[in-house]
Design a binder for these strands. Structure first.
Length: 779
DNA sequence: CAGTGAGCGAGCTTCCGCTTGACTT
């Protein structure tokens, strides 16, 4: 079916948005989408003519050619083209690129903008059309060109001075820096401990009724001696209530979700990675369940506010509604969209898989809670005097007066705060004498700064105004893909802590174990991340500065408001920057993170760690040209870092390969290869079991066991072969049975019995279109 | 991801922001 003459063609960025808008505008308007940017800088020679005042060379990337040719067809038939891309710098540039690439006639082209998809907003935008804002477009061109210059000049410096294929950029390099510097803070963190006293007291009130309460000392004690001294003073002291203060307090709801806060809460509450959150949100958006998921705005449309108010009043009662619009405080926010909210808040639940349901539920609760009343408390603080000591005890209580938004939604926090003993306090009166039941002084250790999670890194970047909602998730992926950063769990450790207990007039000491330092899905810098970071911070301080983006953003704003010419801005940045690049190429050494750990007691030679071609290594002795004596090398184990490895750990690496004695007349040798620790026997390799066997300590008996076990599983490996076709084999693998065919492997569909498959069945699986598609995608 | 434990050296790698594709006639 071909659409006849379309009078009005509207072009937006996203197809899902196009669908909704078309419904609103009716059949006189055809709404289509550009799928974001349709042109980009060519990759040849930067795509920038440096000799010609930074003239950009734009091309249509291959994956956009189809869209552009379709748009060209549509435009030809239209009497009026409405460019409705987002109301921000990038959106303005998209509109401009469209007008250029589609060669739109200015007389038949109108630029319109709306930041919410409602009938009113869209119809009024049609009334208030304008021309493309060239200053804003120039600000975007400056942004794009600056990023290209930085990225495409810095990355090759790294290829020459550190390692090929590495990358650097205005956003990613600062993200890595944050993680590297945080890790160093943690490495250098000196744990200290102190004691805090917690007393349990009781008293009888006028009606002879017994009450109990807990109170904490108002001061910490630096060491055990001070804590004991305090407890000794408590013996025979009287404990008197000095004062009781009551004051009201309140807690307000958080604003509705932006991309960044959604990623943070989905990470804390649901354990999603930022990429997971975004792809689930995309599904919800495409299904029409939520508004657009890439936004920095906390604004809600009047339509949304009205329907949320109705829902709150119906579900919770009138006193729970407190309709308000929040103000976006984020640095550099462009606010082209609404906050992330349910499209129809009346819809409490959606159809979809479990993750989609959970994310929708989170968005629903957060949105509705944002329009609910403050929670009201009454806080009580009582100071308790200790007659023989200058320190006091403080009892704190908190009572709900009104739960407000907390009835629906409690925001999580990144800090794992210690539980405080806050609850209801019994009625206290001044000068009341309390009798101590027991007083504990518990040793508490200071906690190092927390490592970043993906989501808390996004939060930090957003605070610095670095990156945009559409790039948070890809940036986090990039720094992991380059090997700069690894997302990992870490086992916690154990330590002892002391509890001193005063009961009656006796002080006893108790030693207990506590777990600490357990990490889940935290970002750790890897060796190469640290080396690259140190190199960039040393030679390109300006770019790596946390305020670099903020500074250039200011200049982009000046371009947007017509106060500055974009080519001048780029020129004054690029001239000194490029000079610095050339200078760095000349003066800097090849950077491999080299560090001397000490002297090898056996040979008397220095022990050096550094990055080798295939990863981090340790060497004994220097590499002297033309010398016959070569240094000895050993690779670092997985998880060992150049930054933290000790001399002892480094020397231990040379205890491999280790001879383990003979088995069946052949020697067994233990060592560590690319794929981890192994035993070699009779020219065959047998992997040691991860986290079970230690190559430095494994016994010959255990090694033989591993060899025999492996032979057994290998025997069971072959399920079926075909005489007529030796290329096809049905095998048992780590993930169950599979078909092996000329170095390629194929899953066996559910429900088929592997041993009864015929050659024809196998060929069918190998030739099936789904499998072929998958192979293409893996390329 | 499907089973390794080597070592020549050509040619390529890379940025940040917008956005979802994918398949015939």
């Amino acid at each position: 079916m071909r659409l006849s003459m379309i009078d009005n063609l509207v072009i937006v960025e996203s197809p899902a948005k196009a669908k909704t808008i078309e419904k609103i505008l009716g059949k006189e308007f055809h709404v289509t989408s550009s799928m974001g940017h349709i042109r980009d800088l060519s990759k040849k020679d930067f795509g920038i003519d440096l000799k010609n005042n930074y003239r950009p060379e734009y091309i249509v990337p291959d994956d956009k050619k189809k869209i552009v040719s379709e748009l060209k067809k549509l435009v030809k038939d239209a009497k009026m083209v409405w460019l409705a891309s987002d109301e921000d710098r990038e959106g303005e540039a998209i509109a401009w690129h469209l007008s250029q690439e589609l060669k739109l006639d200015p007389a038949k082209t109108r630029r319109i903008v709306f930041s919410e998809i409602t009938k009113n907003a869209i119809q009024s935008s049609i009334q208030n059309y304008r021309n493309i804002d060239e200053n804003l477009v120039n600000a975007q061109q400056a942004r794009r060109i600056l990023d290209r210059l930085v990225g495409f000049e810095l990355s090759p410096v790294l290829w020459k001075k550190v390692k090929p294929s590495l990358s650097a950029g205005r956003v990613q390099s600062v993200a890595v820096r944050l993680i590297v510097e945080r890790e160093r803070e943690i490495i250098n963190f000196k744990t200290s401990s102190s004691f805090k006293a917690i007393g349990t007291f009781e008293y009888k009130d006028g009606n002879n009724k017994n009450h109990q309460l807990k109170a904490e000392s108002n001061k910490k004690f630096n060491d055990k001696k001070d804590a004991v001294t305090f407890l000794e003073k408590c013996i025979g002291s009287t404990f008197k209530v000095l004062d009781v203060t009551k004051k009201p307090s309140k807690k307000s709801p958080s604003p509705p979700f932006t991309t960044s806060t959604l990623q943070q809460e989905a990470s804390r509450k649901l354990g999603f990675s930022v990429a997971q959150t975004m792809s689930i949100a995309q599904k919800l958006y495409e299904a029409g369940f939520i508004s657009y998921m890439r936004t920095d705005s906390v604004n809600l449309s009047q339509f949304a506010l009205d329907s949320i108010e109705k829902v709150i009043k119906k579900e919770f009662g009138n006193e729970y509604a407190h309709i308000q619009n929040y103000i976006t405080k984020t640095k550099g926010a462009q606010e082209a969209h609404e906050a992330i909210r349910p499209s129809y808040v009346e819809k409490r639940e959606i159809e979809g898989n479990n993750s989609e349901k959970r994310l929708y539920d989170l968005i629903w609760k957060r949105t509705v809670a944002s329009q609910m009343s403050d929670a009201q408390f009454e806080k009580t603080i009582a100071n308790i005097e200790v007659s023989k000591a200058s320190e006091k005890f403080v009892a704190q209580g908190e009572v709900f007066k009104f739960d407000g938004f907390l009835k629906l939604y409690i925001e999580s926090s990144d800090e794992e705060n210690e539980e405080e003993t806050k609850g209801l306090l019994p009625p206290l009166i001044v000068n009341q004498i309390l009798s101590p039941i027991e007083i504990l002084a518990i040793q508490r250790f200071s906690i190092n700064p927390p490592r970043y999670t993906e989501a808390s890194l996004v939060k930090k970047l957003e605070e610095l105004g670095i990156g945009r909602p559409s790039t948070y998730a890809p940036t986090i992926s990039t720094i992991q893909n380059r090997g700069y950063v690894i997302k990992e769990d870490r086992e916690g450790k154990q330590r002892q802590f002391i509890t001193l207990k005063l009961k009656g007039s006796e002080i006893t000491e108790l030693s207990q174990l506590e777990h600490y330092g357990k990490e889940k899905a935290k970002l750790f810098p890897d060796n190469i991340g640290m080396i690259v970071n140190d190199f960039l911070v040393e030679y390109f301080k300006e770019i790596l500065d946390f305020n670099f983006t903020a500074r250039v953003e200011k200049e982009f704003d000046d371009i947007a408001s017509g106060k500055m010419q974009w080519t001048k801005m780029i020129d004054s940045f690029y001239k000194p920057f490029h000079k610095n690049v050339e200078n760095t190429l000349e003066v800097s050494d090849y950077s491999k993170g080299e560090k001397e750990l000490g002297i090898d007691p056996v040979s008397g030679k220095p022990v050096i760690v550094r990055m080798g071609r295939y990863g981090p290594i340790v060497q004994i002795g220097e590499n002297v040209a033309h010398s016959e004596e070569k240094p000895k090398y050993a690779s670092l184990l997985k998880g060992q870092q150049l930054e933290t490895i000790t001399l002892e750990e480094a020397l231990e690496l040379f205890n491999l390969p280790r001879k383990l004695g003979d088995f069946e007349g052949k020697e067994m040798i233990v060592s560590i290869g690319r794929f981890g620790p192994y035993v070699r026997h009779d020219a065959k390799f047998y992997s040691l079991k991860k986290d079970v066997d230690d190559p430095y300590k494994i016994s010959p008996e255990r090694a033989i066991e591993i060899i025999v076990d492996k032979r057994e599983t290998d025997k069971n490996r072959i399920i079926k072969t075909f005489k007529e076709d030796p290329d096809i084999k049905i095998l048992n693998g780590r993930w169950g049975p599979y078909i092996s065919f000329k170095k390629l492997n194929f899953k066996i569909p559910k429900g088929s019995e592997p041993s009864s498959l015929t050659r024809e069945d196998c060929l069918k699986i190998i030739e099936s279109p789904q499998v072929k598609k998958k192979q293409r995608n893996n390329k």
